[in-house]
């Protein structure tokens, strides 16, 4: 029982960051119809940004987190303007090839900048864990969960309660009509890509200190984001949030009770099963955003 409770707590913590990754990817896909292969590199960017700012430049750890998020958004906006804007109207496979090219470039730039040796971030949180009954968890991980929930809530607020969010939802439903109504599609696309990228960078910035930052860390993160998004239905934010927690749950229990080696396989098995039996995802009865 104690072991199961421990797995549940781990699920919550991992699920929070998974949800962030999923929401970022699903926003971009839902609104722009772009399968974003650079998502994992934005995640790695977040982790390296925190490392560079807090470990090399000596910045405050919390400030570093905020700057990593903003940096991720800026980088996302840049990718959108340089690579995707000229590709409007191209089919989904073609943009995918461009994004794969961008992914390779970004990953190898990280390799050149930081080298192949993994980087560790030392945080202000104590190594002594918080113990409640049979469950034990580090303060850092609790902080990561809280921050992830704050960001998820902020994204919901942005989509559902702001003017930008309204324009994003209109673009999602029908880009042509939205354009006729005076929505600047280019601006919406750039904002969407920036927000999605910022969320990925935030996930990396939060998980980087829990684990390590290394150049290929984005690969698995990107693939898992795909799994989360498929699980929740492409384009559904609620789906991605729930999908994130489901993936974390399945991974934790799989690793704890089946085999730790197959932890990372769980997500992919889920993808294949979901697409076989419910190709639109678990939560996308009618594809919608918000």
């Amino acid at each position: 029982m104690g072991q199961f409770l421990q797995h549940l707590v781990n699920t919550l913590i991992l699920g929070g960051t998974y949800a962030l990754l999923g929401i970022g990817l699903t926003l971009i896909f839902g609104i722009m119809r772009v399968v974003n292969f650079t998502h994992g590199e934005l995640y790695a960017f977040g982790a390296y940004a925190v490392f560079a700012l807090s470990m090399l430049l000596g910045a405050n750890f919390f400030l570093a987190l905020v700057l990593a998020l903003l940096g991720g958004m800026a980088l996302g906006a840049l990718i959108e303007i340089v690579l995707l804007r000229p590709m409007r109207g191209a089919d989904i496979d073609t943009t995918m090839l461009v994004m794969i090219g961008a992914w390779i470039i970004m990953q190898n730039l990280e390799m050149l900048t930081w080298g192949g040796v993994a980087k560790a971030v030392v945080t202000p949180f104590p190594e002594v864990p918080l113990v409640i009954g049979s469950v034990s968890v580090s303060y850092l991980r609790v902080f990561v969960l809280v921050m992830a929930l704050v960001l998820i809530a902020a994204t919901y607020f942005l989509i559902n309660r702001t003017k930008l969010g309204k324009a994003m939802r209109a673009t999602f439903q029908d880009a042509d009509t939205a354009a006729l109504m005076g929505v600047s599609i280019n601006r919406i696309y750039t904002a969407t890509f920036a927000i999605g990228s910022g969320l990925a960078a935030a996930a990396g910035a939060l998980l980087g200190p829990v684990f390590l930052a290394f150049p290929t860390m984005g690969d698995l993160a990107a693939l898992k984001s795909f799994a989360i998004v498929i699980l929740g239905g492409l384009g559904s934010i609620t789906g991605a949030t729930i999908g994130g927690f489901i993936l974390a749950f399945v991974e934790e229990l799989g690793a704890g009770y089946v085999s730790s080696g197959y932890r990372d396989a769980m997500g992919f098995v889920i993808i294949i099963l979901v697409l076989m039996f419910r190709p639109t995802g678990l939560f996308a009865r009618a594809e919608r955003i918000g």
Binding site: V35, M96, A227, F268, I271
Partner: peptide, 19 residues
Amino acid sequence: VRGAYFVIVTISFAEVVRL
């Protein structure tokens, strides 16, 4: 499935085989 779904299923298949 087609489009993005097809792409992701094929990637997932290769990852499962790798693991």
